[in-house]
Amino acid sequence: MQKPADVIAEAFRDLRPGGNLYLDVNCFSLPATVRKQLGWIDQLHPHHFSPTQMRSLISSAGFTIKQLEVTKASFEQSGKKFIAN
């Protein structure tokens, strides 16, 4: 996926009014420079978002976040489940 913001915006346009978007995203609470280096290492997953960036992408597309679940994992990674409409 080259442009994640475009994909989320397209989902907003495609959903019926009142429809929900469910996302399960690995977010990294690491400095931006470290997250960028992860993209070079993990070529299958070139985008590594912070929780704040993910919230911004979702909101910028027009969604309202209704629910957010956080699960902790290792090395400053946490799973984020966003439910937005």
Results as ranks from 00 to 15, higher is better:
residue 1 M to H: 12
residue 3 K to G: 07
residue 4 P to T: 06
residue 4 P to Q: 02
residue 4 P to V: 07
residue 5 A to M: 11
residue 5 A to F: 11
residue 5 A to V: 14
residue 6 D to T: 06
residue 6 D to Q: 15
residue 6 D to N: 06
residue 7 V to G: 08
residue 7 V to Q: 14
residue 7 V to Y: 06
residue 7 V to E: 07
residue 7 V to D: 11
residue 8 I to F: 04
residue 8 I to V: 14
residue 8 I to W: 01
residue 9 A to F: 06
residue 9 A to G: 04
residue 10 E to K: 13
residue 14 D to I: 05
residue 14 D to S: 15
residue 14 D to H: 05
residue 14 D to C: 13
residue 15 L to A: 00
residue 15 L to C: 10
residue 16 R to I: 01
residue 16 R to F: 02
residue 16 R to G: 04
residue 17 P to N: 03
residue 18 G to V: 01
residue 19 G to F: 05
residue 19 G to D: 01
residue 20 N to Y: 03
residue 21 L to Q: 03
residue 22 Y to S: 06
residue 22 Y to M: 11
residue 23 L to K: 04
residue 24 D to C: 08
residue 24 D to L: 13
residue 25 V to S: 06
residue 26 N to G: 10
residue 26 N to H: 09
residue 27 C to H: 05
residue 27 C to P: 01
residue 27 C to W: 07
residue 28 F to C: 08
residue 28 F to D: 09
residue 29 S to W: 03
residue 31 P to D: 08
residue 31 P to V: 02
residue 32 A to I: 12
residue 32 A to T: 15
residue 32 A to Y: 03
residue 32 A to H: 07
residue 32 A to S: 15
residue 33 T to H: 12
residue 34 V to R: 05
residue 34 V to C: 01
residue 35 R to V: 04
residue 36 K to F: 08
residue 36 K to Q: 15
residue 36 K to T: 12
residue 36 K to V: 06
residue 37 Q to E: 13
residue 37 Q to W: 07
residue 39 G to N: 07
residue 40 W to F: 10
residue 40 W to V: 10
residue 40 W to G: 15
residue 40 W to C: 01
residue 41 I to S: 05
residue 42 D to C: 07
residue 42 D to H: 13
residue 43 Q to T: 15
residue 44 L to N: 13
residue 45 H to I: 06
residue 45 H to W: 01
residue 45 H to R: 13
residue 47 H to E: 08
residue 48 H to M: 04
residue 48 H to V: 03
residue 49 F to V: 00
residue 49 F to K: 03
residue 49 F to Y: 14
residue 50 S to P: 02
residue 50 S to I: 10
residue 50 S to D: 04
residue 50 S to C: 06
residue 51 P to D: 00
residue 51 P to L: 03
residue 51 P to N: 08
residue 53 Q to V: 02
residue 55 R to M: 11
residue 55 R to N: 13
residue 55 R to G: 05
residue 56 S to Q: 15
residue 56 S to P: 00
residue 59 S to R: 10
residue 60 S to Q: 15
residue 61 A to V: 07
residue 62 G to I: 00
residue 62 G to R: 02
residue 63 F to C: 05
residue 63 F to M: 13
residue 64 T to F: 08
residue 64 T to R: 09
residue 65 I to F: 01
residue 67 Q to L: 02
residue 69 E to M: 00
residue 71 T to D: 12
residue 72 K to V: 11
residue 72 K to C: 09
residue 72 K to Q: 14
residue 74 S to H: 09
residue 74 S to M: 11
residue 74 S to Q: 13
residue 75 F to V: 05
residue 76 E to D: 13
residue 76 E to P: 00
residue 76 E to A: 13
residue 76 E to N: 12
residue 77 Q to H: 02
residue 77 Q to N: 08
residue 78 S to T: 10
residue 78 S to Y: 01
residue 78 S to L: 08
residue 79 G to Y: 14
residue 79 G to N: 10
residue 80 K to E: 14
residue 80 K to W: 14
residue 81 K to W: 09
residue 82 F to D: 09
residue 82 F to K: 00
residue 82 F to L: 11
residue 82 F to T: 00
residue 83 I to Q: 01
residue 83 I to S: 01
residue 84 A to Y: 05
residue 85 N to C: 04
residue 85 N to K: 07
residue 85 N to V: 00
residue 85 N to L: 04
